[in-house]
Design a protein around this nucleic acid. Sequence first.
DNA 1: TGCTGCGCTTGGATCGTTCACAAAGGAGCC
DNA 2: GGCTCCTTTGTGAACGATCCAAGCGCAGCA
Lengths: 354, 354
Amino acid sequence: MAVPARSTRPAPRHVAAPTLADVAERAGVSRQTVSNAVNNPDLLRPETLMRVQEAIETLGYVPNRAARNLRTRASNLIGLRLSPIWEGTASTAMDRFVHSLVWASREAGYHLLLFSDDAPFTRDPGPMAGYDDLLRSTAVDAFVVTDTFLGNPQAAWLRERRAPFVAFGRPWDDDAARHPWVDVDGAAGTSAATEHLIERGHTRIAWIGWRKDSHLGEDRRSGWTRAMHGHHLSTSGLASRVEDTVASGREASAVMLDDAAPTAFVCASDTLAMGVLHTLAERGLHAGQDVAVVGFDDSQVAQVVHPGLTSVRQPLEEVALALVRALEDLLATPSVVAPAQLLAPSLVVRPSSG
Amino acid sequence: MAVPARSTRPAPRHVAAPTLADVAERAGVSRQTVSNAVNNPDLLRPETLMRVQEAIETLGYVPNRAARNLRTRASNLIGLRLSPIWEGTASTAMDRFVHSLVWASREAGYHLLLFSDDAPFTRDPGPMAGYDDLLRSTAVDAFVVTDTFLGNPQAAWLRERRAPFVAFGRPWDDDAARHPWVDVDGAAGTSAATEHLIERGHTRIAWIGWRKDSHLGEDRRSGWTRAMHGHHLSTSGLASRVEDTVASGREASAVMLDDAAPTAFVCASDTLAMGVLHTLAERGLHAGQDVAVVGFDDSQVAQVVHPGLTSVRQPLEEVALALVRALEDLLATPSVVAPAQLLAPSLVVRPSSG
DNA sequence: TGCTGCGCTTGGATCGTTCACAAAGGAGCC
DNA sequence: GGCTCCTTTGTGAACGATCCAAGCGCAGCA
């Protein structure tokens, strides 16, 4: 009944965590049986299982992660790179997204490992250094990639290294991409916003969006165009493309009001919508009464600003869930690529749209 | 020169990551020498070191984390529990804090592990289950605790288990606490805000804060009281204590304007300040011109709202840095408790204060 | 009674690293 | 030359889990 491997240990350490062998000894079974009790309970006879579980309970045994990771070559960790904060921008969808991701990962038995650019102590510093180190040191099992904007090397780089990853965002300009991705149908969101305004009687609805080189921005713009043309409304002279800042939104909306006299604005972001609200406030106009405004992201700003900003809300909880599911599939059967998913956002109506 | 332990390996795996032994073989030294080259370079003769480093470079060797963790009983991971999001609240200091913490940890060679309540597959579900599992499974080396509010069992629980942790926030009501902590001097922040308003000629300055059972709220309130009394200004009838919501701030400020006719408001949060802005907008009053308003947290809302909300900004970057330093000290010499640190916030002045 | 098959249990090997200790090599001194 | 001393390198074991293949008991069957 003795377990030689551990009986040779001179003396118990001060606060020694119980090991598999300790549990085995107490339950009067072998290590493998305890391992099975934890990982494949249905392999054990019910009475044996109960005895082992009692021993686990009594000793307060929890498997050592490092040892398990070493043997199974898996860490149960998902890597997420935190992109730099852009202060002064309202769109902190990231916060909600991280929360959702933590929650979704937990359900699948994963934890989230956060990292940022430029890991130190690296031979080859650069934007991908963080990924490289984590990957090679087997610190994480997979990555979640968030910024799939034009020219972002992450996806291509990860693909080249055969690193498992899923993306939040379409591979806009990379036809060779073969990774699972989940995205929100931005066009559907702005289309719904525009339809909502048309229903309320608006016909001169302006668009304030981002510069042309932003796929995301052009996608959202297309929803506005689609809805307008669907109702035979003109869009000429009603579109403006600027930087994603409050100041840009303010200026663009001021010019737009002078030149084209729209009665409503649909914006590519809450940040731009806040710029529109600034312009209205400066001119003594009331949002929702004189001019309607709709933003994008349902950020906290939209929720707390006066009088309440109507905004397109991304289903980030669903996105996170879909991403984790895709990740599980990917790790289980790497050869089969999970189908891409496009989720529909919803419109949160508040007083700013009348 | 042969390395028996690995030469018995039948055939290289498909994408086998190089190991220490591979590097050793290539460089013509032993495993221990390679290990030293990585962890204690100064123990090697320069020429040997160079030869080993070349081999490491060529093979692209990165130490396997799981193996290292197993041997050293350390994971180089810091655990952070994500508290539930309260939507509709402007104070997402959490986002900035997490960023800062990731950055600061990185400098110290740590990564951040995010988790949430109620880890699954636990014998003893409860608010501390997540901590317990991570701790016992040696998944993290230490924790950063953020909510040190009244009755929060985290600190006491962690102390009892002898778990290494540092806290962002004072142990308000726990005199037995002996852990390192870092906090922001909220009273200094509100005091500075009040002084700022007094300088601008205000004498009737109201306080809108949280309920009395919030130590954080009472601390911030004391800064307002201190500044007012320091200038021999009365505070009677000028304080209001409510829930941390926009609606509460709106109602409280409306009542306050009717009853006490203040010319300025200092608030315990940006959320409450937004409520004040709502009231002003409803009454056709202009923030900064007719009535001054100061918030707390310098949230994104403060930055983008019209006309720009003056707010107290917490030095979260410094907080994160101090926390990580305290953590390093704690892990290096557990017996010596690092001194607590109280950091001063700054006032970001915007048009809402005139 | 003896044999086969099944289900559960067992000991040994292994993952890749670091620790403890031993051995080798060179310099300096008598 | 022989000795000691110090620096640098090498060897075996250990960390704690899982995988593998063999071993054991028990029931069923002839």
